[in-house]
């Protein structure tokens, strides 16, 4: 527990966060989340709410998973939509947490960072614990922190693309620029090695959905991601070696015969 991740008022032992959409069935979703011991699940409300919060039975299922629920504003394209959805989420899930998405482009689902900052400011002032889905842009990140966000969630690649970390340079400089802010890679991961790479880089957690939900075996893939997150985190904590240009043998070779004979051939 010494390596717990602190996000607002919560301490989490797992650094894997999973989405709850696109699974073959809610039963498979629940199994994937339980077996991977994901610390947080995110759930969307915009489209599911309907007129009278008609998404209740699915939401109860998510609540029943006994993990932290991070409602999101997926599908919101304007500040007003996002703020309204966040307020409903607070009622439905009885949490101040909100994963704030304000989508700017229908094709890439990239965040509208201007709308994002505006919505973040409104929500932070209203007492929400905002998890903003943003880009690796440092000035946007600074603005979000000034608005009151205590966590940043830069994208790895466009939502659902499975391309991994598109801009490792940008993500590295973000990590270096905000050493004390919890940073979570949100979106774009495709395979566990992508998650491991993010964690090796010093990111605090990863959040993903499609890569698990659309895998042939979502339960196995969720476990694969959980292992990768753990592996990457351990690597980061262990202070990995620097890569070098020349070979560096782990045992001295000077004075040793280095021919066929020495291998007993």
């Amino acid at each position: 527990m010494s390596d717990a991740l602190k996000l607002y008022d919560a301490e989490l032992s797992s650094r894997l966060m999973l989405g709850t959409s696109l699974y073959p069935s809610p039963a498979i979703m629940a199994d994937a989340i339980l077996k991977s011991k994901a610390g947080v699940v995110t759930v969307s409300l915009r489209r599911e709410a309907g007129n009278s919060r008609a998404g209740q039975s699915f939401w109860s299922l998510v609540k029943g998973l006994n993990t932290h629920v991070l409602p999101n504003t997926a599908g919101c394209h304007s500040v007003k939509e996002a703020v309204t959805t966040a307020q409903m989420a607070r009622d439905v899930f009885e949490t101040n947490w909100i994963k704030l998405e304000v989508i700017g482009n229908q094709d890439t689902l990239q965040p509208d960072v201007f709308g994002l900052c505006e919505a973040a400011e409104i929500l932070c002032r209203d007492g929400f614990d905002v998890f903003p889905y943003t880009t690796e842009d440092l000035s946007v990140a600074e603005k979000l922190l000034r608005c009151g966000c205590k966590i940043l969630m830069p994208w790895g690649a466009p939502i659902g693309s499975g391309r991994g970390l598109n801009n490792t340079f940008g993500l590295r400089s973000m990590r270096a620029h905000f050493p004390d802010v919890p940073l979570i890679i949100d979106a774009g991961l495709g395979v566990p090695s992508h998650a491991a790479a993010a964690m090796e880089m010093g990111y605090d957690a990863v959040l993903l959905n499609t890569a698990v939900a659309k895998a042939g075996d979502p339960v196995a893939m969720a476990q694969g991601f959980a292992l990768a997150v753990e592996a990457g985190r351990l690597s980061y904590l262990a202070d990995a070696m620097e890569p070098r240009d020349m070979a560096f043998p782990s045992t001295p070779v000077i004075g040793q015969p280095f021919g066929k004979d020495s291998f007993g051939a």
């Binding site: 489209r47 309907g50 009278s52 008609a54 209740q56 699915f58």
Partner: peptide, 13 residues
């Protein structure tokens, strides 16, 4: 396929 129990109300989207 939307996870809600609204029997009516077709949305524009």
């Amino acid at each position: 396929m939307i996870e809600n129990s609204e029997r009516t109300r077709i949305t524009a989207r």
